[in-house]
């Protein structure tokens, strides 16, 4: 059996996930990165996207918002604003949110402070849909 490490996902509202996993991948600021047990210590910025983990035959995907990841040999902690497991996502709500964010971005000047917020909402909605659609197949 492959070595495992503890993956923890926490948001300001709750601790979403805390389990031993074999591997995980997450969207970092410098691109997607993967973690196996015994990874060298790393702290990185995360962008909104899809976090995937695997343990044996069991695997899962979680939509995450912006945040941070701290990786040590035995444990990976994900600190994010938002995180939702695939079972919690409502595809229709996510699509509506995506549409709304897109409309907002279109109506705004890219330098406006709201533009960034809209873009973040857009990315998060995109991640949610990605998680849901993959799971449906």
């Amino acid at each position: 059996m492959a070595e495992t490490f503890l993956l923890e996902i926490v948001t300001p509202y709750r601790r979403l996930f805390s389990k031993e996993v074999e591997e995980m991948s997450a969207p970092g600021a410098l691109g997607e990165f993967g973690v196996l047990a015994g990874h060298t210590p790393l702290v990185t910025i995360l962008t909104a996207g899809v976090l995937a983990y695997k343990k044996g035959a069991e695997s899962g995907r979680i939509a995450i918002g912006k945040g941070y990841a701290e990786v040590t040999h035995t444990r990976t902690t994900i600190l994010v604003d938002n995180a939702e497991a695939d079972t919690e996502i409502d595809i229709q709500t996510a699509r509506d949110a995506l549409q709304k964010a897109e409309d907002m971005m279109r109506g705004l000047d890219p330098d406006a402070p709201d533009y960034k917020a809209a873009q973040e909402a857009f990315e998060l909605a995109e991640a949610r849909i990605a998680v849901k659609e993959k799971q449906g197949k």
């Binding site: 210590p41 790393l42 990185t44 941070y68």
Partner: peptide
């Protein structure tokens, strides 16, 4: 083992501090 900071210590810190105040 030195910890790797991506993209850099300052970038991580300057993003993190506002979050810290928020929380």
């Amino acid at each position: 083992i030195p910890v790797i900071y991506e993209p850099s210590v300052d970038a991580v810190l300057s993003g993190l501090l506002p979050k810290y105040v928020e929380i």
